[in-house]
Each structure stands twice: as C-alpha cells, then as structure tokens.
Write a protein that binds this DNA or RNA. Sequence first.
DNA 1: ACCTGAACACCGTTCAAGT
DNA 2: ACCTGAACACCGTTCAAGT
Lengths: 235, 235
Amino acid sequence: MEHDVTSGTPATRPALTRGRIVRAAIGLIEREGAGALSMRRVAAELGVAVMSLYNHVPNKAALLEGVAEHVVAGMELEDDPSRSFADRARVLVRAFRTVAHEYPRCMTIVLTHEIDSPAGLRPAERALALADAAGFDGETSVRIMRALLAYALGAQLRETGAVRMLDHLAAAPADSYGRLDPDEFPHVIALAPQLARHDPETDFEFGLDLLIRALDALPRAASRPLDEDPGTAQG
Amino acid sequence: MEHDVTSGTPATRPALTRGRIVRAAIGLIEREGAGALSMRRVAAELGVAVMSLYNHVPNKAALLEGVAEHVVAGMELEDDPSRSFADRARVLVRAFRTVAHEYPRCMTIVLTHEIDSPAGLRPAERALALADAAGFDGETSVRIMRALLAYALGAQLRETGAVRMLDHLAAAPADSYGRLDPDEFPHVIALAPQLARHDPETDFEFGLDLLIRALDALPRAASRPLDEDPGTAQG
DNA sequence: ACCTGAACACCGTTCAAGT
DNA sequence: ACCTGAACACCGTTCAAGT
C-alpha cells in the first residue's frame, strides 16, 4: 500500500537490519572466502552506502562476532534423554561438526571470535546437562564440557585446512617426500600413503570415540535427573 | 674492522634477512597483538623501507607462515624411549602447550596457517614414532597423531581466549547470569562458580588424560622398535 | 532514527628507479 | 642482488550534513 510500486523494478527494498547485514557477510564469506569480507563489499552486496552499516553494527569486529554467533546458533541441538550418556554426547559434538560443514569458510571466524549471546551458551548448557544427568559432579561436568569442546574445535581446525599443519605435506605426491631426510622422518615417509588418505569423518569419529569411551569409564555417582520438583508440571 | 665505526651510534646494521623479519614480526605481535602486524610496522621496526621486506618475503601471507613455522620450530621435542607410550605421548602434547605459553599472541596465527617446512613435520614424526613403537598399525598411528593434534590445537584455541565461546560468560560476575533465562540455562547458572574458575592447566590435563587413557586401552600388537638393523650403530 | 559523501589515516603491493 | 620512493587500489572509521 505504498505509492510508486507500480513499476517492475526491485521496488521497496527490505529495511537494513543487523540480521540482513550478518547474512550478507556470511554469504560473501562462503562465496569468496573470509579474506574478501570488507564493510565496503558487504554494503555493495546490499546496495547501500558503507556508512549505513554502522547504524546497525558498531564496527567490523562486531560484524564478525555476529557471523560467529549466527553460525553457532544454527546448530541443531536435538537430544534423546532415553539414550546413553555416550550416545547423547556423540550427537552433541556431531552437531557442531554438521554446522561446520554447512559454513566451511566461516569456520575460521567462528573458531577465533567470542560469542556474546545466549545462542553460544546453548551447546554448553546441553553438555553440562548431559554430564550432570550421567552422575558427574559439577566440577567434572565443566571439565567434560571443555574437553569435548576442545576436541570439537581442534578437529575442525585440523580439517578445515586452515590448519593442516604437521601432516599436510602428506597430500603432496611422492615427489615431496623425496626432499625429506629419511633419517629424520622415517615414519612420515613410511606412512605417506596413510597420511595422504583423507577420510575426515573416520578421523573425527576415531578421536571422538576415544574421548567418549574414556568418559564412560570415569567413576561417577548413579544417574540422576536435575533437582526435580514434583509440584511443577513440565511441557 | 670496518671504517666509520668509531662513533657511538648503532653503526652497521645487521643485514636484512628473512629470519630477522620473522622475528621482528613475532616481537611486534607479542607486544601489540596480531592486529598491529603490518608490513609497514615491521619495516619501521627494522629501520628499513617497506619494500625492502619484499626482497626476503614474497608477501604478508608468507610472513605469517614464517611466524607460524618459527613458533612451531621452537617446540622442545625431548623424548625418553624407556618410558611408557602414555608418558611419552603426554610429554609430546605438552611441548606444544609450552610453546603456546611462550608465544601466546602468536597462537591464533599458528593455529590458522599451514606450515610448509620440515620443522612442522617434526612433531608429527615424533607422534607417529611413538604410536609405531607402541605396536599400533600404520593407519591407527596416523589417526592417533591426528586425534592428539586436534586436542592440542583445540585446547589451545579454547584457552587463548581467541575462543572462549560457549562458556566465557561464566567469567562475568553473577550479574550477567541474572540476564540468563533460568529455564533455558539451569546448568550453566547452577555451575556458574565452576565455570568462572579458570584453571587451564587442570582442564588441559583432564582432557589429555582422557585421550591417553583411551589410547592405552586400545588393542595393539606387542611393542616393537622400528625396523632395526643390527649392523647399524646408533649415536 | 536512519542514511549518506567526503575525508583521514591507514593497508598490501606494483613499478620504475637507483646502487 | 638488494634497496627505495612514489603511486595505486584498496581498507575501517570519523565527521558533518542531510532526510
């Protein structure tokens, strides 16, 4: 019901918004890489002057935090309380991995920026809830959450290619290995075929299994739900 | 034995060198943070024109790789073959942690750049050697190395503060928790004291112990040294 | 309240010129 | 072979002006 909408041109553009800006940034990163992200490029993407962005985002750092937050908020945190602690923990850590596959080129930003919103706390809450329900005390629950988080982050860092350090030479043909001193790198050379093989899924699950099996073997009190109040109904 | 050295002034400056450039960059990063690093600042640091740097380093990305390489090359890889696999693996992973403490503000760069030199392969060689000596097959040895690497990277990422995501709100005073919905974050709120406590060393060792204990429990062939040649003397 | 252009103080890097 | 200044095409962000 606005005047001047009769023409076939793009017409009234949706209002500029923090959300639109963040999504434009994410799109740009996924399309052209994190290096291509600039306030000016994002503004151009939205058909708007650079300085307009600053009405919704205080600066570039905040925009990057917005990107990280949006990606993490996209984690699908389904949970089946009837399953074992090990299974539930596995599902939780895999949720991070799934979102990482969805936004591969945003991952470096996600991994290197703090997230100041409750969205970032949701996975932590879930991990703590699992550990608590499994009978671990508070201090141990926090440590379990941090260990799982560390592995999830590190595995992603290794796979993203941002860091293929220490074993990425393996991807090169045998030629490269000819340059390596066989006295210094006998195992790297001997295991070149295995190092060259890229099966990130299996690699990821191997380490996750190690962690979770060790967690399962940890001493703990009997399983119990969070202090439940019989007088309270739950949805 | 050069002329013109009689004055007290700095006299003949040491030749510009890739090594000197990299070390200047590292110093700058540790002093002022990774954000302060620029080719121009590094040049100023060395009392040299910006473009002089390009005679020794092709571009900024290469300089960052040089920084990562130099830091990782600083890992002290001592090893005692008479100790158990678990002990030796622990020592190896801790070596990365030690270097991370030495160059805290360089860590984000180390974690996000590939390392193209043999220096970056040395820790991998060591890890593979340990796993091999412990009787794991080649494929498993590679996976073990990757799992340990993922944990080392991730734990560092979590601690560096580059990513305190998911639990960093805990560091804020109780005030912040007042803002959190108690229905959505019961465990985060209940465990606020434990989350606020920062004991990175214990956190790190907790997760490392989980991994290594699980590795120790893995089935493997009997321990054996790398194909040793009785005819060869060793230093 | 939101948008904008011009301007400022920076970037990395190319090029042509020097020794 | 190494150094250098000037210049180019970018940055993020401040400011003052518009609506």
